[in-house]
Design a protein around this nucleic acid. Sequence first.
DNA 1: CATAACTCGTACAGCGGCGTACTAGTTATG
DNA 2: CATAACTAGTACGCCGCTGTACGAGTTATG
Lengths: 210, 210
Amino acid sequence: MARESDRVDTEAPRARRADARRNVEAILDAAVACLSRDPDASVVDIAAAASVGRVTLYGHFKTRAELIDAALVRTIQHADQILETTDTTGDPTEALTRLVASSWQIVDQFRNILVAAQRELPAERIRGVHDRVVRRIQSLLERGQRGGAFRTDLPKRWMVTTVISLMHAAAEDAAAGRVKVDQVPGLITATLLAAFTAPGAKVPAARPSA
Amino acid sequence: MARESDRVDTEAPRARRADARRNVEAILDAAVACLSRDPDASVVDIAAAASVGRVTLYGHFKTRAELIDAALVRTIQHADQILETTDTTGDPTEALTRLVASSWQIVDQFRNILVAAQRELPAERIRGVHDRVVRRIQSLLERGQRGGAFRTDLPKRWMVTTVISLMHAAAEDAAAGRVKVDQVPGLITATLLAAFTAPGAKVPAARPSA
DNA sequence: CATAACTCGTACAGCGGCGTACTAGTTATG
DNA sequence: CATAACTAGTACGCCGCTGTACGAGTTATG
């Protein structure tokens, strides 16, 4: 079935007026900001933060779910752009280090958006939206496996899960002040590089990325 | 300040009537069951599941939060009992294997209770309740570090976070059908044993626990 | 068996969020 | 400049959940 929110980059048959487009942007910005602070932020909060009447908001997004979906898509696209500029070629261990450094920043900033989405949107929708970024991780892992840098005795799915879950866990620990933010990427990479080493092989030393 | 729910194993000044105690048990059972299915389960749902009037429920738990707190405590105690019977002596890698096998089952069953608690209860309360079980993991890790089995270049806190987060991630993957339940403990241990190997050292082979 | 403990159902009040009508006003755009 | 697009505000109606009050019935317990 077709979703309205598929028109993310395609445009409606009739061009919308300039101020309308500006408002939609403001609403999405506000949504991202509010939901990042509080995943339970209400439509009222978001409309207020966007300096827009609540009714106006409903003019652009039929329901709260649709709004959150749009905010999620926007965030993911933003993230994907950043990851696009991250060099994932060369030595897989170093590439993983770079990828983790970039990804974690995003995860840390926007994880609450994901929380909001998980409460409002069906699970498969969320997976669908994350497809590109997951694929990015997966293909790096596969390349590392083919080159012998990463172990091949674990399912690829599980390795991806490991990467993602450690980044989220680190974000929570950082938010709770349990670890210092600037040392987080180092912790994640040091852990992942070891975790992805085959039994019997020697664990490579993690090198700082910055 | 003192909490009402501290009277978990201590008893009230006046002994309560037998049927009252039975009802409280039924309510707690129902709460655990309902919240496991849906972390947003309402008081109505829980009362119904316990075959008890909603008002009766309120007679025992002043608020929804108090009920969830009690359900959480009950679950943790139950978990702690199971972990109590798990042998964490001997070779640390094997001990970790056993501990993960036991713990994961619990996490898989009851993670939704934690979700409910996280939405209703203050974070420090949740950490407080988990204290014993976290300590259990931590002391095993420390023992492994002293014996040279586990790396010492990562903060203990982070290693504990890694253990816990992988178990939760695995539980979600299992619930989504992304991995088969019976191979999950193996995946977690294989990953953890490698992750906890020092750079330059060889990763030990994971041995099945069952 | 008498009393206190406990339970039940219904009903009510409050809250906050969601989504919609309606009217009146403003502003971009051809 | 005329029209259509857009916005604002207010005011509803709806819903579900929480917590409380009441009055009457049941049951364990000394």
